[in-house]
Protein backbone atom coordinates (compact mmCIF):
# COMPACT_ATOMS: atom_id res chain seq x y z
CA UNK A 1 0.00 0.00 0.00
CA UNK A 2 1.10 3.54 -0.69
CA UNK A 3 0.48 6.67 1.28
CA UNK A 4 -0.95 9.57 -0.68
CA UNK A 5 -1.62 13.11 0.50
CA UNK A 6 -3.25 15.92 -1.39
CA UNK A 7 -5.40 18.96 -0.89
CA UNK A 8 -9.04 18.38 -1.86
CA UNK A 9 -11.49 21.25 -1.84
CA UNK A 10 -9.17 23.17 0.43
CA UNK A 11 -8.67 20.42 2.99
CA UNK A 12 -5.51 18.38 3.48
CA UNK A 13 -6.36 14.71 3.05
CA UNK A 14 -4.40 11.50 2.93
CA UNK A 15 -4.97 7.79 2.59
CA UNK A 16 -3.49 4.36 2.05
CA UNK A 17 -3.99 3.21 -1.53
CA UNK A 18 -2.81 0.73 -4.11
CA UNK A 19 -0.69 2.00 -6.97
CA UNK A 20 -3.55 1.25 -9.34
CA UNK A 21 -6.08 3.31 -7.41
CA UNK A 22 -7.46 5.95 -9.73
CA UNK A 23 -8.03 9.49 -8.56
CA UNK A 24 -11.78 9.06 -8.99
CA UNK A 25 -11.70 5.94 -6.84
CA UNK A 26 -9.77 7.77 -4.15
CA UNK A 27 -12.27 10.64 -4.20
CA UNK A 28 -15.36 8.47 -4.18
CA UNK A 29 -14.35 5.51 -2.07
CA UNK A 30 -11.75 6.89 0.32
CA UNK A 31 -13.05 10.42 0.76
CA UNK A 32 -16.75 9.77 0.16
CA UNK A 33 -16.89 12.58 -2.39
CA UNK A 34 -19.46 10.86 -4.59
CA UNK A 35 -20.33 13.92 -6.65
CA UNK A 36 -17.61 12.94 -9.12
CA UNK A 37 -19.10 10.20 -11.30
CA UNK A 38 -17.86 7.42 -13.53
CA UNK A 39 -19.81 7.08 -16.77
CA UNK A 40 -17.39 5.16 -18.96
CA UNK A 41 -14.13 3.26 -19.00
CA UNK A 42 -12.55 4.75 -22.11
CA UNK A 43 -11.96 8.37 -21.04
CA UNK A 44 -14.76 9.77 -23.16
CA UNK A 45 -17.82 10.77 -21.16
CA UNK A 46 -16.30 13.38 -18.85
CA UNK A 47 -18.59 12.59 -15.89
CA UNK A 48 -15.48 12.34 -13.70
CA UNK A 49 -14.02 15.76 -14.53
CA UNK A 50 -12.26 17.53 -11.65
CA UNK A 51 -9.70 20.30 -11.46
CA UNK A 52 -6.11 19.26 -10.74
CA UNK A 53 -4.06 22.31 -9.81
CA UNK A 54 -6.85 24.39 -11.40
CA UNK A 55 -6.83 22.47 -14.69
CA UNK A 56 -9.79 20.34 -15.81
CA UNK A 57 -8.96 16.65 -16.11
CA UNK A 58 -10.67 13.29 -16.23
CA UNK A 59 -10.13 11.72 -12.83
CA UNK A 60 -10.86 8.23 -14.19
CA UNK A 61 -7.60 8.41 -16.12
CA UNK A 62 -5.29 9.72 -13.42
CA UNK A 63 -3.53 7.63 -10.83
CA UNK A 64 -4.30 8.85 -7.33
CA UNK A 65 -0.66 8.37 -6.39
CA UNK A 66 0.31 10.54 -9.31
CA UNK A 67 -1.71 13.34 -7.71
CA UNK A 68 0.30 13.21 -4.51
CA UNK A 69 0.76 16.80 -3.40
CA UNK A 70 -1.75 18.18 -5.88
CA UNK A 71 -4.56 20.62 -5.25
CA UNK A 72 -7.86 19.07 -6.33
CA UNK A 73 -11.24 20.72 -6.70
CA UNK A 74 -14.32 18.56 -7.14
CA UNK A 75 -17.92 19.54 -7.73
CA UNK A 76 -18.43 19.55 -3.96
CA UNK A 77 -15.80 22.25 -3.62
CA UNK A 78 -17.11 24.60 -6.27
CA UNK A 79 -19.94 26.30 -4.42
CA UNK A 80 -19.07 29.31 -2.32
CA UNK A 81 -20.06 29.81 1.28
CA UNK A 82 -22.64 32.35 0.15
CA UNK A 83 -24.26 30.11 -2.42
CA UNK A 84 -23.84 28.35 -5.72
CA UNK A 85 -20.96 29.01 -8.08
CA UNK A 86 -22.26 31.08 -11.02
CA UNK A 87 -21.86 28.09 -13.33
CA UNK A 88 -23.92 25.89 -11.01
CA UNK A 89 -26.57 28.58 -10.80
CA UNK A 90 -26.62 28.88 -14.58
CA UNK A 91 -27.25 25.16 -14.97
CA UNK A 92 -30.25 25.47 -12.62
CA UNK A 93 -31.58 28.63 -14.30
CA UNK A 94 -31.25 27.22 -17.81
CA UNK A 95 -32.51 23.70 -17.10
CA UNK A 96 -29.08 22.46 -18.11
CA UNK A 97 -29.58 19.09 -16.46
CA UNK A 98 -32.14 16.32 -16.35
CA UNK A 99 -30.96 13.14 -14.66
CA UNK A 100 -27.97 15.03 -13.28
CA UNK A 101 -25.42 12.26 -13.68
CA UNK A 102 -23.21 14.01 -16.25
CA UNK A 103 -23.80 17.39 -14.59
CA UNK A 104 -20.86 17.54 -12.15
CA UNK A 105 -18.49 16.77 -14.99
CA UNK A 106 -20.23 19.24 -17.29
CA UNK A 107 -19.92 22.01 -14.72
CA UNK A 108 -16.28 21.27 -13.92
CA UNK A 109 -15.52 21.11 -17.64
CA UNK A 110 -17.43 24.34 -18.25
CA UNK A 111 -15.49 26.24 -15.60
CA UNK A 112 -12.27 24.92 -17.13
CA UNK A 113 -13.54 26.12 -20.49
CA UNK A 114 -13.96 29.63 -19.10
CA UNK A 115 -10.40 29.51 -17.76
CA UNK A 116 -9.13 28.60 -21.23
CA UNK A 117 -11.48 30.48 -23.49
CA UNK A 118 -12.79 33.40 -21.50
CA UNK A 119 -16.20 34.64 -20.52
CA UNK A 120 -17.67 35.59 -23.86
CA UNK A 121 -18.41 32.22 -25.43
CA UNK A 122 -20.43 31.76 -28.58
CA UNK A 123 -22.51 28.60 -28.98
CA UNK A 124 -20.18 27.05 -31.54
CA UNK A 125 -17.22 27.40 -29.19
CA UNK A 126 -19.14 25.89 -26.29
CA UNK A 127 -20.25 22.96 -28.43
CA UNK A 128 -16.73 22.30 -29.63
CA UNK A 129 -15.24 22.62 -26.17
CA UNK A 130 -17.80 20.19 -24.72
CA UNK A 131 -16.30 17.47 -26.90
CA UNK A 132 -15.12 15.59 -23.83
CA UNK A 133 -18.46 15.49 -22.05
CA UNK A 134 -21.41 13.32 -23.02
CA UNK A 135 -25.02 13.87 -21.96
CA UNK A 136 -27.90 11.57 -22.90
CA UNK A 137 -30.85 13.58 -21.55
CA UNK A 138 -30.73 17.17 -22.75
CA UNK A 139 -29.75 17.16 -26.41
CA UNK A 140 -27.16 19.69 -25.14
CA UNK A 141 -29.47 22.62 -26.01
CA UNK A 142 -29.85 23.89 -22.46
CA UNK A 143 -26.34 22.87 -21.45
CA UNK A 144 -24.91 25.16 -24.11
CA UNK A 145 -27.16 27.98 -22.92
CA UNK A 146 -26.18 27.31 -19.32
CA UNK A 147 -22.46 27.38 -20.10
CA UNK A 148 -22.81 30.64 -22.01
CA UNK A 149 -24.78 32.21 -19.20
CA UNK A 150 -22.51 30.81 -16.51
CA UNK A 151 -19.39 32.03 -18.30
CA UNK A 152 -20.80 35.53 -18.53
CA UNK A 153 -21.88 35.45 -14.90
CA UNK A 154 -18.40 34.39 -13.78
CA UNK A 155 -17.06 37.66 -15.18
CA UNK A 156 -19.03 39.77 -12.77
CA UNK A 157 -19.03 37.34 -9.86
Amino acid sequence: MLRVAMRVNGAEVSGEIEARTLLVEFLRQHLGLTGTHVGCDTTQCGCCTVHVNDVGMKSCTLLAIGCDGADITTIEGLARPDGLHPMQAAFCDNHGLQCGFCTPGMIMSATDMVRRKGHDLDAATVRKELEGNICRCTGYHNIVKAVQAGAAAMKTA
Binding site: G46, K58, T61, D112, R116, E129, E131, G132
Partner: peptide, 8 residues
Protein backbone atom coordinates in the same frame (compact mmCIF):
# COMPACT_ATOMS: atom_id res chain seq x y z
CA UNK B 1 -8.92 13.96 -28.11
CA UNK B 2 -10.91 16.53 -26.20
CA UNK B 3 -10.02 19.56 -24.08
CA UNK B 4 -9.71 17.56 -20.87
CA UNK B 5 -7.45 15.00 -22.52
CA UNK B 6 -5.41 17.83 -24.05
CA UNK B 7 -4.92 19.27 -20.59
CA UNK B 8 -3.09 16.12 -19.56
Amino acid sequence: GDPLVRNR
